[in-house]
């Protein structure tokens, strides 16, 4: 590689393994997707203000009206808001993927000598970063308005692990939505149709025991409730049961199915 003119005239320098290039391409595209957050005022706003707004609204508007057993409402609330924000945040992957597909840039990525599924990794990992920032803000705001976690250091680590795993799983599901949607606008409402019921028909804001039976059965058995209950148990000591196990199994299950499926859809997209 002495002569740069020669280098640029030729094909890629084969200095890394296929996997090595995959990692380095993914890092480049993760950096790109993170720049989309930092350079987009809308996204920055939603990262910072949405959690603050939700925390304050639920804490002060519903706080007195909802019976949450032995726990104070603010202690009950934090797990719900953390998980709901992660679920809503994952729709950015759908929007990002769909935008790439419907603008010409996908053609350029696919015409490059790289594994183009790095594009999906870029979006989903950027979601993790965004959600981590949101979560930290939320917890700080929660602490300011009366949230008093009892979690030990190890329990905090488990909270972080479960939350990241869940976020990642939902981002990959969201990538599939983005790949199916016929337009960028369609992504918005498909995501809402999908995420609203999952997050509100859960134990995020009210205990499931007071819900009508069919709704209660759905709410108690769907992944979002399992994740919320696991995180709540870890944070403030509500009964754990098998929630942590189910939360992890659900997230892993979603990942195991959605990563290959999204990758397949992405590769196949418009090549026929």
């Amino acid at each position: 590689m002495a002569d740069t003119a020669e280098l640029t005239r030729n094909v890629k320098p084969e200095t890394k393994s296929k996997f090595g290039w995959f990692v380095s391409d993914s890092l480049v595209l993760i950096e790109r997707s993170i720049k989309h957050i930092t350079k987009n005022p809308d996204q920055l706003l939603s990262v910072a203000f949405q959690p603050i707004m939700f925390m304050l609204l639920f804490r002060y508007v519903f706080g007195g009206a909802i019976a949450t057993g032995g726990t104070s409402y603010v202690n009950y609330l934090v797990a719900g808001i953390l998980v709901q924000t992660a679920a809503f945040g994952s729709t950015y992957t759908a929007i990002g993927v769909s935008t790439d597909l419907h603008r010409g840039i996908i053609d350029r990525f696919k015409s490059l000598p790289m594994n183009s599924s790095a594009v999906l990794i870029g979006h989903t990992v950027a979601d993790l970063v965004r959600n981590t920032v949101s979560s930290i803000i939320m917890i700080l705001v929660g602490l300011a308005v009366g949230f008093r976690p009892t979690a030990t250091f190890v329990e905090w680590l488990m909270v972080i692990g479960i939350l990241l795993l869940f976020t990642f799983a939902f981002s990959w599901l969201s990538a599939i939505l983005g790949l199916f949607a016929k337009s960028i606008e369609a992504v918005q409402w498909i995501s809402f149709v999908f995420i609203f019921p999952l997050t509100f028909a859960s134990s995020a804001y009210v205990p499931t025991k007071d819900m009508p039976t069919p709704l209660r059965i759905f709410a108690e058995n769907q992944p979002v409730t399992q994740v919320i209950e696991a995180i709540r148990a870890l944070l403030v000591g509500t009964p754990m049961g098998h929630h942590a196990l189910y939360a992890v199994l659900w997230s892993l299950g979603i990942l195991i199915i959605s990563i290959p499926f999204a990758t397949y859809l992405f590769r196949r997209h418009s090549t026929r």
Binding site: V11, K12, R32, K35, H36, K39, N40, R103, G104, I105, I106, D107, R108, S111, L112, P113, M114
Partner: peptide
Amino acid sequence: DNVRGVIGLTGQYAAIDEYL
């Protein structure tokens, strides 16, 4: 893969990232 290493494509629709 080999083909992709020797071509440059400028498609009909602008393929740039507008936030960057």
